[in-house]
């Protein structure tokens, strides 16, 4: 492996992100003794598992050149539907799971069809989806519903030991599994390659005979599915359903994807990068908790700052890439 490959504009953001993660983690380890405990690292995954799942779906949407603002609301709707069915209708977890996943897919399908068939802007359609899903939450109930259904609590409290004194929760395992599926889909399937092609240049993709319409709709279905799965994980994590859960999660998911090196213009990005992006958001949060004196709102300011730096970086890379092309 040569050095030039690292400086490839496509992978440079990922290299920078990974170094930044190592740097932040190293800073934490030097400053606080307890930071080096493996559980702190695993907790990053446990506390942000749902965000990993949602952000993977978002990554596909952004690579295809679109955007999905409805993910946070679909997460909330999933928690609400799960909680109501579990508490008031005494369904168990395994009956609810397929239903909520189907609801997520249907939501994605609906928005994908509007975007693709009627040529509407993804931004405004998914905005409508966001209103609709949050509104439906409030229609179900405006109160928070705690879940005491045994099948939920068993799963929520289930811990898989990893060596001594370290354990991982169900949501951590699901997040890693979904990430693996995402990487496989993006880099080893026809679907994934088509998504990259559409993001790079939709017209060319169409002229190449790729199934553009079908793939674009499927991307939103995938995002809806990931949001619903993320919602299931949030339900387990919070053990409740509430219309105000996951407020603003779409922003975190977009931020994670961008920080992980996905170009917002589409066509470039790594699903693994999104994991690193989520982990960086997690480390910032953990550092602020360990510090104790910084208030929680510094998280938002730090995320905004990081987002700025990475967007700037993307623009610079884009410009230098164009210069090289014109020179050649």
């Amino acid at each position: 492996m040569n050095f030039a490959r690292f400086l490839n504009p496509r992978s440079l953001p990922l290299v920078i992100t990974t170094s930044l993660f190592a740097l932040l983690y190293g800073f934490g380890a030097v400053s606080y003794d307890a930071f080096l405990s493996p559980q702190v690292f695993v907790n990053l995954l446990i506390d942000n598992g749902f965000l990993v799942v949602v952000a993977v779906g978002m990554t596909f949407v952004i690579i295809s050149g679109g955007i999905d603002l409805s993910v946070g609301s679909i997460v909330a709707l999933t928690t609400m539907v799960s909680a109501t069915l579990a508490q008031q209708h005494h369904w168990n977890f395994w009956q609810i799971l397929p239903l909520v996943l189907a609801i997520g897919c249907l939501f994605g399908l609906f928005m994908g069809v509007l975007i693709q068939v009627f040529k509407l802007q993804a931004f405004i359609v998914t905005l409508g989806g966001m209103f609709l899903a949050r509104g439906l939450c409030y229609v179900i109930s405006i109160d928070s519903i705690s879940i005491t259904e045994p099948s939920f609590t068993v799963l929520a409290e289930y811990r898989i030991p990893l060596g001594e004194e370290t354990f991982v929760s169900t949501s951590g395992v699901v997040a890693i599994a979904l990430l693996a599926v995402g990487v496989y889909l993006a880099h080893y399937t026809r679907f994934g390659r088509t998504v990259y092609a559409i993001g790079g240049n939709e017209r060319s993709a169409m002229l190449m005979g790729l199934p553009v319409a079908k793939t674009k709709i499927m991307v939103y279905v995938l995002s809806g599915f990931c949001s619903a799965l993320g919602g299931v994980l949030v339900t387990l994590y919070m053990q409740s359903g509430y219309g105000l859960h996951a407020l603003g999660m779409e922003l975190d998911a977009i931020a994670a994807a961008v920080i992980g090196g996905t170009l917002l213009t589409g066509g470039v990005g790594y699903v693994v990068g999104t994991l690193v992006g989520v982990m960086i958001l997690g480390v910032i949060q953990t550092l602020i908790v360990f510090d104790g004196s910084l208030s929680s709102w510094w998280t938002r300011i730090a995320i905004g700052g990081l987002l700025f730096v990475f967007c700037l970086l993307q623009r610079l890379l884009d410009r230098s890439g164009k210069k090289i092309r014109t020179k050649n």
């Binding site: 509007l114 009627f118 509407l120 409508g128 209103f131 609709l132 509104g135 409030y138 229609v139």
Partner: peptide, 19 residues
């Protein structure tokens, strides 16, 4: 609480009219 749902429907209808 229905307000948001109605707004969502308005968004979709307006978008479709402009489409």
């Amino acid at each position: 609480e229905i307000n948001l749902v109605v707004k969502a429907i308005v968004v979709f209808v307006v978008c479709l009219i402009q489409s």
